[in-house]
């Protein structure tokens, strides 16, 4: 009996949240978001490749083909479309999944903030409530992952020794002042992209929550 009470004490934190359930919930939704993001990215790459092939035929692939730097085996060809879809699913799936994990971690026990503003239903299975977004947590999660993604991409170009030739990646400096295809430039770019993504997520969450409030009260 004493052990059972200890387990109950471990299971819940001081605010009374069932942490085991909360962590399982975050893992479940991170998997779903990974599938969602990965599938959408795969479809986009597949159809972009097919459209490029249909429009320019043998001449296609000048710019889209640059994806081969990050997608080994990719080319603007029918087989390449499937390979590109695979890599896009993998990269964006992992990105989305990790983003949700981070979102859940940042939101953590403050889940009550979005729960209390919704109407938690007694039967979440048959009558689900409407999701609201927590802009700050979303911004921190997506911003951090986007920044990490840019830094890793830049570092990869440096490591493979093609930094000097990466003129297209360097064009990002138009939007991210100070960015360059170098480790230092990648760090600076990551920090700036974090801020841009953070602001973008705040806007996304604000508009989404506003429309939800208008439609569902």
């Amino acid at each position: 009996m004493g052990n059972y009470q200890n387990m109950q004490a471990v299971k819940q934190d001081e605010s009374g949240i069932n942490l085991k359930l909360l962590h399982a919930a975050i893992r479940f939704n991170s998997m779903i978001l990974g599938l969602t993001g990965g599938t959408m990215a795969a479809l986009i790459i597949y159809f972009a490749t097919q459209v490029s092939l249909g429009k320019w035929g043998a001449d296609s692939g000048n710019y889209l083909g640059l994806l081969a730097v990050f997608f080994p085996g990719y080319s603007v060809s029918p087989a390449g479309a499937w390979i590109g879809a695979f890599w896009a699913f993998l990269y964006i799936g992992v990105f989305s999944s990790l983003s949700y994990r981070l979102y859940g971690k940042v939101l953590g026990t403050r889940i009550s903030e979005i729960l209390l503003s919704t109407t938690p239903t007694e039967n979440p299975v048959l009558k689900p409530s409407i999701m609201r977004l927590h802009g700050m947590s979303l911004g921190l999660a997506i911003g951090a992952m986007a920044g990490l993604g840019l830094f890793c991409s830049t570092a990869w170009l440096v490591v493979r020794g093609t930094a000097e030739e990466s003129v297209h990646a360097a064009l990002l400096a138009n939007y991210i002042p100070g960015y360059s295809v170098s480790i230092l430039g990648g760090l600076l770019g990551a920090a700036e992209l974090f801020v841009l993504a953070f602001v973008g997520c705040l806007l996304l969450a604000a508009v989404y929550n506003k429309v939800v409030a208008m439609r569902h009260g």
Partner: peptide, 24 residues
């Protein structure tokens, strides 16, 4: 007040508002 388990489940299985996400 302590957060009930069904509230966490409500958050997990909450539906995304398609129109709201489309507009946002």
């Amino acid at each position: 007040r302590p957060i009930q388990d069904h509230e966490i489940l409500s958050a997990v299985f909450a539906k995304m508002d398609a129109l709201a996400l489309t507009l946002a």
